[in-house]
Nucleic acid binder design. Structure first.
Lengths: 345, 345
DNA sequence: CTGTTAGCGCATTCAA
DNA sequence: TTGAATGCGCTAACAG
């Protein structure tokens, strides 16, 4: 089937293609009468401007790549939603790219910008190849990550403060022996969360016990493993802070398997507030990251960057929020007594 | 910063732009010596072909739109992964569009194909506006859905057989009073699942009790509501089949709240095998849909369609699989006795 | 095997 | 206010 082009419209309306173009882009630069004739011809032909040609001509793609660590992680879905929503409104498209911790894939997506398949890059990976051929960097915004050696517009949360509030909640409930399952500590984000944990304890006059910290991988199983290892080492604890919800869920499952109840015997706090945090039983107390807002903000910064309102590399903080649900409870007297006995023994 | 074009490469190599183009696209249609000179010039200039120009010239976008009902549903994420993976390998891009049960949004994404922003459409919505201006339809593949009045290449599962296997599992465990929480029955998919449920019962010589069927919305809460309404109506049941996992999780949570244990008092089977099916406690018995495979297959069909190996509108079935985990158990003697007493009373 | 030519569909000068 | 002319960057006839 033949698609109408600007030429066919121009011929039908008896004007030049330039006038058709103008009528559609700047209607008030065209005499009323001409405009009506053109619009009528547009209607008659069913003409729809070929966006590919328009974008080519304007040397823009109106496409942004959202590059994430792992596309299968629902966490990024919410981010994507925020990005897409904002982009949709502004007439942009969003391509989600899966980095998979694979340099080649990352490189591929960065290359897409050079190949004019996208205008910019929202990075949610912890790294980026910085070879010479990657220079200069495309318009880039970073979300929730930090990339060593790069200073770019960033939307972030205060990981340390967020972790601290989670641990403070446990302290407020009377807990003193609080374990931490961290994320991979190579990443600054996870170091920050651990710092927050330590800071909360220290501020409460508790000397952090290194035995209480176990490092995980963010995967559910690593939450299980961490608990198993804590129990194996017979480290007493009445509460546990996990640096993400999946590990928290894994931890709870392992605690149960060992005969401990949550929250009666052990309180658990997660991080992220993923979709299922509210659905597990009991519903998970956790630190909420407003992912859609984070996504939308990143896209907004991206558009600023692309459309010249760039400003300098600033960082915008999105607030987090502790959501108290069913996995945390006041430290029970009995537990407290039992533990003191254990300690004395 | 200036980007090298094919012209600059041609000048540096002392050849025509056509030769540069050829060298890159059909290397062996070029004399060895020339080729080397061109490649050297490419290296020297850091030339990368402008994909936008290439695609424009070839009137293709190498982009496919994956249009889903609700982008926030992690279910589609796995589909997306399958689609993206296959597309990545074939040099295609994938744009995920959010239909949100909104005709206007659907129309928008269908329009994108007409505007040459995408080559084709993978539909995962239950409907599609079929106004005159939407004709003719763009290259379209349907996944896991059926759209009334449209006969298009489709990748599907056998919903009826899958549901039947789930219910058969419950029958095998000795259950006779099996409830079904359906998805929205306007959709063929959900009718089919309900048919499978009925067929399994009938084949086992059980007359289905309409009271045991409750319709849900696929959302977690509707699982809760369905159970609440079953209990309120005092319909006895020892097992429950939910047409998706979220409703199953909601149902379990409500069963627990009412003092019933899963699976000791009530067995539960879900549908989908979403990421969290394995993480809830106890892990959910469910029907697995191989979503990545479904996605990949849909993309494969799309490419066939676009690249002319189209064939006719065929349907490919992807097998499902019952995954037995912890929420189903043999009907307990005690329960059986209690129920008979109830029935007699 | 290579160069010349001719667009793809559109937006944007520049003149009129 | 409008039209003619130009070219974005590239590929694909066609001729040589």
């Amino acid at each position: 089937m033949k698609v109408a082009t600007i030429r066919s419209v121009a011929e039908l309306a008896g004007v030049s293609t330039a006038t058709v173009s103008r009528t559609l882009a700047h209607p008030d630069a065209v005499k009323r009468e001409t405009r009506d004739r053109v619009l009528e011809a547009v209607r008659a032909t069913g003409y729809v401007p070929n966006k590919q040609a328009v974008d080519f001509r304007r040397r823009q793609t109106r496409t942004v790549i959202l590059l994430v660590r792992d596309i299968a992680n629902p966490f990024y879905l919410d981010i994507y939603q925020g990005v897409e929503e904002y982009a949709f409104g502004a007439g942009y498209k969003v391509l989600m790219g899966d980095a998979r911790h694979d340099e080649a894939r990352i490189r591929h997506y960065v290359e897409m910008v050079r190949k004019k398949q996208a205008d910019g890059l929202i990075l949610m990976t912890g790294s980026m190849p910085q070879t010479a051929e990657m220079q200069p960097l495309p318009p880039t915004v970073i979300a929730l990550e930090t990339i060593a050696g790069l200073s770019l517009p960033t939307v972030a949360i205060d990981n340390s403060a967020a972790a601290r509030s989670a641990v403070q909640h446990l302290l407020d409930l009377g807990h003193r022996q609080i374990a931490h399952i961290t994320g991979p500590l190579i990443e600054l984000m996870n170091q920050k969360r651990h710092e927050g944990y330590l800071a909360a304890l220290t501020a409460a006059g508790i000397a952090p016990d290194p035995q209480l910290t176990r490092s995980g991988t963010f995967r559910l199983d690593s939450g299980r493993h961490a608990v198993r290892s804590l129990l194996h080492d017979q480290v007493p604890f009445t509460a546990l802070f996990a640096s993400n919800d999946e590990m928290a869920v894994g931890a709870i499952s392992e605690l149960r398997a060992s005969g401990r109840r949550v929250p009666e015997d052990v309180s658990v706090v997660g991080f992220d507030d993923i979709v299922f945090a509210d659905a597990v039983d009991p519903p998970l107390t956790t630190v909420r990251q407003q992912r859609r807002i984070i996504g939308a903000k990143a896209m907004a910064m991206m558009i600023d960057l692309l459309e010249g309102r760039g400003g300098t590399a600033r960082t915008e903080l999105v607030p987090t929020e502790l959501v108290v649900r069913g996995t945390t409870a006041r430290l029970a007297q009995s537990t407290r007594r039992k533990l003191s006995l254990t300690e004395r023994a």
